[in-house]
Nucleic acid binder design. Structure first.
Lengths: 182, 182
DNA sequence: CGGCGTTTTGAGAGAGCTCAACATCGGTGG
DNA sequence: CCACCGATGTTGAGCTCTCTCAAAACGCCG
């Protein structure tokens, strides 16, 4: 048997008991309060973990991209604390939580991979939080670029604005300013 | 042998090979670029993981309190990406990274505990990031309180201001406003 | 009493947000 | 081919909020 494989937690989702699910844009994956029975890995598209504040504002707690697990903490919780829905047409793989946890317990290499993924997520989430304490767009952009990030193609700049927690206009103005100053 | 113990990753630091270290306020625990040989658990006080931006501003990536591991992601990295120093007089327990990882690999229950801790950290870090995208102090405070947090005793309100990413004055004004409105 | 840190309150300035108009570009359909 | 449409990019003007600097009232403790 060929056993050459990266010990990545993602391989857990290649199990037989995993099922694929297609979501259309805006389709809910689960709602706050639902019992956690399955855990979802995003294969394609984007799934947002979100909560609505008392004032009605929508807060995106996680923008899960391909390779990400939606609501990692739910793997250790009986019920979801927030809802999740597809930000656009997406494909996810569902796996019973018990299977997921059993796989981690059975294979230390997978557990390490999973923990490393979580540790990196903590790191980037903290960075995002700190970037957003900076008050000017210029500072936020500098800090973000200093993390090794690069500006994407034109047509995706709005995503950066969202990442930095500023409006499109504010980012466009800052970019224009930099072009003018060279 | 009595083996009644909660399967918490913290117990890993009770190993014989662990050493305690006292830090005075401002004392560095490690610097960016240092090779990762030991991993630190905060026992008392507070240790800040920080980076200085190109403009000189100091960014606090983690405020590790008792029970927290400083720079969790360092356990999966050969060298530190940022520096850490004691925010006040603190006590930490150091354990060789190899020991730490070996303990996790040897005991699945510990691995689960560690992963659960990381998952919770991801959750709270994301929440902090999202709270800081809200523009008014009132919104941030509402969102924070909505997470189940409660205002501390008078004398510690400044900590909340830091947590919310606003100035003391702004928070005091908001609190005064609420007292006036009941 | 005299510090020291926290809490309060004031006034001004700056930065981004909002609303708004317009340009640009790619795709669609007549 | 061209008109139209939606999404992205660009720029302007006013408003609102926080930040900054400043001063003072508390509260605690030696």
């Amino acid at each position: 048997m060929i056993t050459i494989m990266s010990a990545s937690y993602i391989s857990i989702f290649d199990a037989d008991s995993a099922t694929d699910l297609h979501l259309t844009e805006g389709a809910p994956l689960f709602h706050a309060g639902d019992p956690v029975t399955q855990i979802a890995l995003v294969r394609a598209g984007a799934v947002h973990l979100l909560r609505r504040t008392a004032t009605g504002a929508t807060v995106i707690l996680q923008a899960a991209r391909p390779g990400d697990v939606v609501a990692e903490a739910s793997a250790y919780s009986p019920a979801y604390h927030c809802g999740a829905e597809a930000a656009r047409a997406s494909r996810v793989t569902l796996l019973p939580v018990k299977r997921f946890r059993a796989a981690l317990a059975a294979d230390p290499a997978l557990a390490v991979s999973w923990a490393a993924h979580l540790a990196r997520s903590v790191q980037s989430a903290r960075m995002r939080a700190e970037i957003r304490t900076l008050r000017t767009v210029a500072e936020r952009l500098d800090a973000w670029l200093g993390e090794g990030h690069a500006l994407p193609e034109k047509g995706h700049w709005q995503d950066i604005a969202a990442e930095l927690g500023v409006t499109r206009e504010a980012l466009y103005r800052e970019l224009a300013r930099r072009r003018a100053d060279h």
